[in-house]
């Protein structure tokens, strides 16, 4: 492979990792606080639809983003109400959210736009376009550094930069602030946090809302940044790959980034390898597609390292007894 091919594959890697990374970090807040979230997919899908629909109707990409974030936050709140206040089963709540998202987005899409569930093609100004970082043009001709800076790092849309900025921010929030300490404590030993006079319920709601916010960015990325409009079920299971990445990264921000880059790279690779023969053998792209899931199963089973989640995860907190 020559330099151009490698660069374009890596460029695609960054683009494909972005929604995974946003969703993965989203899940990290909620799961670190003891609320399992298998509804990342649903919140992204809701956000993707709301963002594209609003951007198309108002003609403003920012209104679209705001709508995506708003809907995702409301969905997270609904999930939180079921899983935190009503002490329902967190996994079932997530399943319901995923299904609700598939049903509602398709149903409303068909109803509102009459294009079989798609929203109208977004025009300029209705979607996020490439951001050129300073000096990208000037540096383009410098060997090695030039192409990497101006092709690989520069020239993505703003949500890509938000996703990668969210990594150090999440690390700082979770591991260097009082809020983060409490959030993690709620996921490990809620009783102790309660005894210290901090509301477990309030902490968990805050975590779930941050999850909703980040899922909103991830969903918007699909429909108003990477794509130009919403299509049926356009998140296509990425929420579950993000969940796999979260487990693979053992609920830590920086490993999460590298895992998402790896899974994004696999995705970019399988797109590039479609119909390509390597050494006379056609590589089955499905094998590469399934790799993130297989790796996660192997890791969970403890064959390569051990992934142990937050101890109080999955259980609603009750004060009594």
């Amino acid at each position: 492979m020559d330099m151009v091919v490698i660069l374009s594959t890596l460029d695609a890697t960054i683009r494909l990792s972005t929604p995974l990374l946003l969703a993965c970090l989203a899940g990290m807040y909620s799961e670190r606080a003891g609320v399992f979230d298998i509804g990342l997919e649903g919140k992204m899908l809701m956000a993707a639809f709301a963002a594209a629909a609003t951007a198309s109707v108002t003609g403003s990409v920012w209104a679209g983003l705001a709508a995506g974030l708003g809907i995702s936050l409301m969905t997270a709140l609904l999930q939180g109400a079921a899983a935190i206040t009503l002490k329902g089963n967190q996994l079932i709540a997530g399943t319901a959210i995923n299904m609700l998202a598939v049903g509602l987005t398709t149903f409303l899409g068909i109803q509102w736009f009459a294009q079989g569930g798609r929203t109208p093609q977004l025009k300029e100004g209705e979607r996020f376009t490439e951001v050129k970082l300073p000096f990208a043009d000037e540096l383009a001709n410098v060997p090695v550094v030039g192409p990497i800076y101006s092709d690989l790092i520069s020239g993505h849309n703003i949500l890509v930069y938000i996703a990668f900025l969210a990594v150090p921010v999440t690390w700082f929030v979770l591991f260097r602030t009082r809020f983060g300490l409490r959030l993690r404590a709620v996921g490990e030993n809620p009783k102790a946090v309660d005894t210290a006079g901090i509301s477990v319920i309030a902490m968990r709601y805050q975590a779930v809302l941050i999850t909703g916010l980040l899922c909103g960015f991830a969903g918007a990325f699909f429909s108003i940044a990477q794509g130009s409009g919403f299509g049926n079920n356009m998140t296509a299971g990425k929420g579950f790959i993000a969940l796999a990445a979260l487990i693979f990264a053992k609920w830590k921000p920086v490993p999460a980034m590298f895992t998402c880059l790896l899974f994004g790279f696999l995705d970019a690779l399988q797109i590039r390898l479609q119909g390509v023969e390597v050494g006379g053998v056609q590589v089955p792209v499905q094998a590469i597609q399934a790799l993130p899931y297989v790796l996660t199963v192997i890791l969970l089973a403890g064959f390569i390292g051990k992934a142990v989640g937050p101890k109080a995860g999955g259980v609603a907190y009750s004060k009594e007894r």
């Binding site: 609904l78 109400a81 079921a82 899983a83 206040t85 009503l86 002490k87 329902g88 089963n89 967190q90 079932i92 709540a93 399943t95 319901a96 959210i97 995923n98 299904m99 609700l100 598939v102 049903g103």
Partner: peptide, 13 residues
């Protein structure tokens, strides 16, 4: 169907 799961499964409370 999603609402049934939500109400009978997750929002039993």
């Amino acid at each position: 169907q999603a609402l049934v799961i939500l109400f009978t499964g997750a929002m039993e409370g």
